[in-house]
Simulated scan of single mutants.
Amino acid sequence: MNGQGSTTARLKKNSGYPRFFMRSIKRPMLFCQDVTGEDKHYGITSLLIVSILIPILTLVQNHSNTTQSLVDTLPATIIIPFVYHISFFFVLCLTILVFIRLMKTDYHFGDVLARFGSFLNVSIFFTAISLLFQLLTMSTLSTFCLFLALLHVLVAIAYTMHSFKAPFKTGLDPIYATLALYVLLGLWFTSTSDPITPLFLQSLLQMF
């Protein structure tokens, strides 16, 4: 509790999302594991940012292959993917909450939003760098950074689950909870036409 209280006190003293973002990417494990539900507005901000960055990056990557104007392609390339991604992340946070409750912990949805969002800031950083490289027509570096960004989403899920582990020997073990969540994600990605899996596989294949 001391870690959580001190982290919240630091955030209140040095308010502002930019400082929160910098601290969370500088020392993700040490900083993010103590973020609490009081900081959920920062977590939601991170979810919104990553949800809009991915469609923008995809648009930049594919813009040279289309003859349509950006205005014409905006709903299909930005708005719809943004709604999908933000909905996906909120459902993912709800699913994480279900599993951490099975781990016999007493946390709430705001705690999950705050902590997962803070862990996700590393993905935001790599996605922004990928977008920068793409604008500079450095496709190889852009693909590498995108791969790291998407890979870190899986890492963020595991770290978020582990950070909510119960101090007592009851409930579902965090390892099994994480594996079960990965299985559900796998079933979701293989049974729906989501835009995340093709993006991840494309970045993975382009590296080899």
Results as ranks from 00 to 15, higher is better:
residue 136 L to A: 15
residue 44 I to A: 14
residue 194 D to A: 07
residue 39 D to Q: 14
residue 113 L to S: 00
residue 44 I to G: 04
residue 103 M to P: 03
residue 48 L to W: 10
residue 123 S to H: 05
residue 83 V to K: 05
residue 183 V to D: 10
residue 16 G to D: 04
residue 23 R to I: 02
residue 203 S to G: 06
residue 104 K to M: 07
residue 79 I to F: 03
residue 77 T to F: 05
residue 24 S to L: 05
residue 2 N to R: 09
residue 22 M to E: 03
residue 18 P to A: 04
residue 135 L to Q: 00
residue 148 L to V: 08
residue 6 S to W: 06
residue 45 T to K: 05
residue 190 T to R: 06
residue 185 L to H: 07
residue 141 L to M: 09
residue 176 Y to G: 03
residue 146 L to G: 06
residue 54 I to Q: 04
residue 13 K to H: 05
residue 30 L to S: 14
residue 71 V to T: 11
residue 123 S to D: 04
residue 62 N to F: 06
residue 43 G to D: 11
residue 159 Y to R: 10
residue 136 L to N: 10
residue 119 F to C: 11
residue 138 M to L: 09
residue 12 K to E: 09
residue 51 S to P: 01
residue 192 T to Y: 09
residue 141 L to C: 02
residue 205 L to I: 13
residue 76 A to W: 07
residue 5 G to T: 03
residue 21 F to N: 02
residue 165 K to I: 08
residue 141 L to K: 01
residue 42 Y to A: 00
residue 67 T to R: 09
residue 207 M to I: 08
residue 120 L to Y: 15
residue 153 V to N: 03
residue 118 S to I: 06
residue 124 I to Y: 03
residue 208 F to D: 00
residue 177 A to M: 03
residue 153 V to E: 11
residue 172 L to V: 08
residue 175 I to T: 07
residue 37 G to W: 09
residue 48 L to Y: 09
residue 103 M to S: 07
residue 167 P to Q: 15
residue 62 N to L: 10
residue 76 A to V: 14
residue 133 F to A: 14
residue 122 V to H: 04
residue 16 G to K: 00
residue 132 L to E: 01
residue 92 L to C: 12
residue 114 A to N: 10
residue 82 F to P: 02
residue 70 L to R: 05
residue 168 F to N: 11
residue 152 H to D: 05
residue 205 L to N: 10
residue 197 T to H: 04
residue 181 L to E: 06
residue 73 T to S: 15
residue 37 G to T: 02
residue 148 L to N: 12
residue 71 V to Q: 06
residue 107 Y to F: 11
